[in-house]
């Protein structure tokens, strides 16, 4: 009797997990497993539709990838670009969140509305519209600046700057809204106490608000890293698949070019696995750092 009850009690968490597993296994574990399997095969168009048997390569695709100089260039570019985008998104988002707490109702509504509109714009639409504005020969920006014939995608860094601006434009509203909600939730008495102790706005932000917001910041930072590391649409659409001579290639576009444009599904999967591994490591490091500072997520 006791044993039965205990057994029931111990099984309980498993039963409670079942609905989650029912969703996660088909939607997450299975595709991931297929991705891993594909990455060990020679799997191209002839294998998919031509009846040619898939050949097991073991680590072959990974060797090809890791010995390819282009992969390392693309990886370095992706890390640099994502880091810059994360910092810029957080800076813009946080600054505007603070601004929201300081302005009156009407400007606050206007700012929120503008930000939400940018957030709601599909990445595809946003990118296309920005490229209309920055078109070499017919764009409004070149017209206004008197730069007719200036190609914004010609120089690698200028092109990245422009793409980065669009990425930030798309993603800062999430940061802004989240942080604004967080700041609003900071207890007034704490802020008043800080003020009584002689803390100016900057010190209050650094020493009072940021520590209270840390869990929210953690979510926002991880989200931003993952988003910006995996950026695809903006780069693909704005640079026509990787830029002049492939100079604006980032990891996800590179994977797409290998997997789908040139039908090397096996190699593309290997890139996918590497991307996933990098993101898992980044997230683990971040969670560990959070633990150390005594904050549970």
């Amino acid at each position: 009797m006791r044993g039965g009850r205990n057994g029931h009690g111990r099984l309980m968490p498993l039963w409670l997990l079942l609905p989650t597993l029912a969703v996660l296994v088909p939607l997450f574990a299975y595709p991931l497993y297929q991705l891993g399997l594909l990455s060990t095969l020679e799997f191209g168009q002839p294998q998919v539709s031509g009846g040619v048997p898939a050949r097991f390569l073991g680590a072959g695709n990974y060797t090809t990838l890791l010995t390819d100089g282009e992969f390392w260039t693309v990886l370095a570019q992706t890390v640099g670009f994502a880091a810059a985008c994360v910092v810029a998104t957080l800076a813009v988002g946080a600054a505007l969140a603070v601004l929201l707490t300081r302005v009156d109702r009407v400007p606050r509504l206007l700012l929120s509305f503008a930000a939400l509109a940018a957030w709601a714009a599909p990445a595809m639409t946003g990118s296309v519209v920005w490229m209309f504005l920055f078109d070499t020969n017919l764009g409004l920006v070149n017209e206004v600046l008197g730069l007719s014939g200036y190609n914004w995608l010609y120089d690698r860094d200028v092109a990245f700057l422009l793409i980065g601006a669009v990425v930030v434009w798309h993603s800062f509203p999430f940061v802004m809204v989240t942080l604004y909600a967080g700041i609003q939730a900071v207890p007034k008495p704490v802020l008043e106490a800080a003020e009584l102790d002689g803390a100016g706005p900057w010190v209050a932000w650094r020493r009072v608000i940021v520590p209270i917001l840390r869990p929210i910041l953690a979510i926002v930072v991880i989200q931003s890293i993952i988003w910006d590391f995996k950026v695809f649409t903006q780069v693909y659409v704005m640079t026509g698949g990787g830029g002049i001579a492939g100079q604006n290639m980032v990891l996800n576009v590179y994977a797409y070019q290998k997997a789908f444009a040139s039908s090397q599904y096996g190699l593309g999967s290997a890139i996918g696995v590497v991307t996933t591994a990098i993101l898992v490591v980044v997230t683990l490091f971040y969670l560990r750092a959070l633990r150390r500072t005594g904050e549970a997520l």
């Binding site: 099984l11 968490p13 009846g51 898939a54």
Partner: peptide, 23 residues
Amino acid sequence: IIRRLGGLVVATLALAACAPSTA
């Protein structure tokens, strides 16, 4: 629980362990 969960994972993998589709 761990063992049972492990069993579940193994069963799932066994179910899924078919090669990628080749039309």
